[in-house]
Design a protein around this nucleic acid. Structure first.
Lengths: 294, 294
DNA sequence: CGGCTTTATTGCGATTTGCGCATTACTTGG
DNA sequence: CCAAGTAATGCGCAAATCGCAATAAAGCCG
């Protein structure tokens, strides 16, 4: 036979309010229904929980013993379900998103501001890591959403392109090339390039695109992170080819950002999520904000 | 809408066994039923708890968060109901009984032995107190059963007579009356009686019975408890009129117990319980043993 | 790559459960 | 002894739930 939550809830309400009628009102059912629920529960258990006359209701010894447990069951249940409905109705809940560092400081902040305004109280955890780590975080469920650049395909991963950004040339103002409106790849012969490590998805992508066009570049220095590269450029060590969003125009005095053409090469920023994995309402709302602006 | 325990139970089983079919087997329903339960729960909550294909079942983010709570709800419920059914089926549970001291050491022990043999593990708490206290303990629900002597009637109290025992005369062997086979009340003129306090139900009853018959006795000493009276008799202070069960024949060397006749006056031992108060199965079983032997 | 196996879902009919209304039964206070 | 208040019951209806059979979908393996 099936376990009867209604009966227990009825029992608790009756015991606490001291009567069937009052309990019925609170539970929004008729008193008849409560009578039946209690009868069913008692007959299922094989013992009486309430001694009742038409005049008063009183707990039996067993009922008195059971009441605290019953109360706890009911409240635990009610709370849990309430929380879930709240998550569903108001997209409440915390949210983890993985993101490559450039985007974390470029595209994300605006969305985060709008999200927090719309759903205050939701905790957001950002895993800022390399594109490969972003991919894995999404794949293994550590993050519900990921923002990165295309990497190795995986059948369980679903990618949506969000935006594209060109690679640009970064140098100091006193650099010989800094006055040009645009620069071609051929101009980079002796540019003392700081390049990103071959383990980076950025580098893999860039190499692939250049190789397709028969272009090759040589790096004098190699680092792991874009931010380090920018730092070295600023320090006068050399120049670098980096995604445009690595640094906003004029964000750092003394540094120039110059379009690279012939050809223009762009990297795609993609939004990652696991295929067949339902997003939590909180993540779903964030997802909506992300794709709404493209 | 109504809270759905079945759905949660299904969810937990599926999550833990990793599939609808296995869970269905454990819950003794068809797999179809589980599909429906989960669907109903999810649509009620407005969110998905399980991502499932025909090949595997996996928790969603929300489901993963909810699982521990759900598990705790289910196990708490299952345990609580299990305990209650155990109480009902096997008369498990603890039991409190109030009893006047003489009966606690006279009639009770045999019943307790049989009870413990039949229902091992049940804790028995005995409130050994005066007849008035026994009455109140039962009346106020501190004890489910009471063994005492008739006191003031109360509409909520139900009394069943268990046995009767005569008052007898107690003295030391060297006492002049100790050789008689029986003693009449008239013989007690100069017996140096130790009597029980007038607050005792015993005394009230005895006085009433004697007065009805125009007999009066005078006490030289007065104590509260029967056991104290016996002690004083043994110490040679005087003699006493006490219920026969106060001391078994020969239980204390040097003391005599002699029938009092002309007339024989007996006190009734009654079993008390609250009217309209259902006994716990444990108490009910004890009650059955008590009245079975009359 | 196409059939095969496995597993969840759906359509449908039958049964059961649960509810509310109206009425009854019972207790108690005046 | 009557009146008021409260729980229980008879009855009929509505909805939920289930099981069976058929269907759909996803990976496995030859």
């Amino acid at each position: 036979m099936k376990i009867d939550f209604d009966g227990i809830q009825a029992f608790v309400a009756i015991a606490e309010l001291g009567g069937f009628s009052k309990a019925a009102e609170q539970l929004h059912v008729t008193q008849t229904a409560l009578t039946r629920r209690v009868q069913k529960l008692e007959s299922y258990l094989g013992l009486r929980l309430l001694d009742r006359t038409t005049r008063y209701v009183e707990l039996t010894v067993v009922g008195r013993e059971f009441l605290p447990q019953a109360r706890s069951i009911v409240s635990e249940m009610t709370n849990a379900v309430g929380r879930l409905k709240d998550m569903s109705r108001n997209a409440k809940g915390s949210l983890t998103i993985a993101c490559i560092p450039t985007m974390a400081s470029h595209a994300l902040p605006a969305v985060m501001r709008r999200y927090t305004a719309a759903y205050p109280g939701n905790r957001i955890r950002i895993i800022d890591a390399s594109a490969v780590e972003v991919r894995n975080a999404v794949l293994h469920g550590q993050a519900e959403l990921g923002i990165g650049i295309p990497t190795e395909r995986h059948p369980d991963l679903q990618e949506t392109q969000m935006l594209e950004e060109p690679y640009m040339f970064f140098c100091r103002e006193e650099h010989p090339l800094s006055r040009q409106k645009s620069i071609t790849w051929a101009d980079l012969r002796e540019a003392e390039l700081i390049v990103i490590s071959g383990l980076s998805a950025n580098r893999v992508f860039l190499d692939y695109q250049l190789a397709r066009r028969g272009i090759s570049i040589a790096g004098a220095y190699e680092v792991q992170h874009l931010s380090t590269a920018i730092g070295l450029v600023a320090a006068g060590v050399g120049t670098a080819i980096l995604p445009s969003s690595t640094l906003e125009d004029g964000a750092r005095p003394g540094l120039c950002r110059i379009p690279l053409i012939g050809p223009v090469i762009k990297r795609k920023i993609t939004l990652l999520r696991r295929r067949n994995a339902t997003l939590s309402p909180a993540a779903s709302a964030f997802h909506a904000l992300l794709i709404e602006r493209e």
